[in-house]
Design a binder for these strands. Sequence first.
DNA 1: TGCCTGATGTTCT
DNA 2: GAACATCAGGCAC
Length: 190
Amino acid sequence: VTDLDRNLLQLPAWEVAPLLLGSLLIRETAGQQLIGRIVETEAYDQNDAASHSYKGRTPRTDVMFGPAGRAYVYFTYGMHYCFNIVTGPEGHGSAVLIRALEPLQGIDMMMQYRSAHGLGLTDGPAKLCQALLIDKGFNGHNLSVPPLILRTASPLPSGEVVRTTRIGISREQEKAWRFYIRGNDYISKP
DNA sequence: TGCCTGATGTTCT
DNA sequence: GAACATCAGGCAC
């Protein structure tokens, strides 16, 4: 995350979400770099009833209200972690959920971390956390610092970005705040 | 290919 | 007590 990126991440989550497509997530572990390209995202905002931050700032959602460029990692369904990138100005609770990555480097190691759980390396928000060893310890982590770094890329042509409604939520289902790279093979399959 | 369900802990009502 | 930003495995077609 560079200074330039920080400006980008100040935007509302629903504007940042499509811009993050194509960016790289770099996880350093066991002397190796695990690298994935972001191919699917969803936006969540404090004025959005589907968002954890909707009910206000709590111990759980605190980092969503913090500075942009941090990681918001939450635990759900009794067994899974999901990884978000905090957006917007400090004091505003918003973030972008990373739903899928295209594995680029360190694939063997990702397979090891995933093999005990099932098939599909990084095509789902909880799967990519397993593949990259992301857990609650990364909640609040600054994504400009190892061992977990976000490297943003230049925005994709709008023709390559598909926009749809979000997945796995019961409220605000009409909001089209899910974005993915058209034709990519690693999009999550709900 | 598609629907159903169990696993399992935290947060909220 | 219920809901939950999920996943994998089972079974019917």
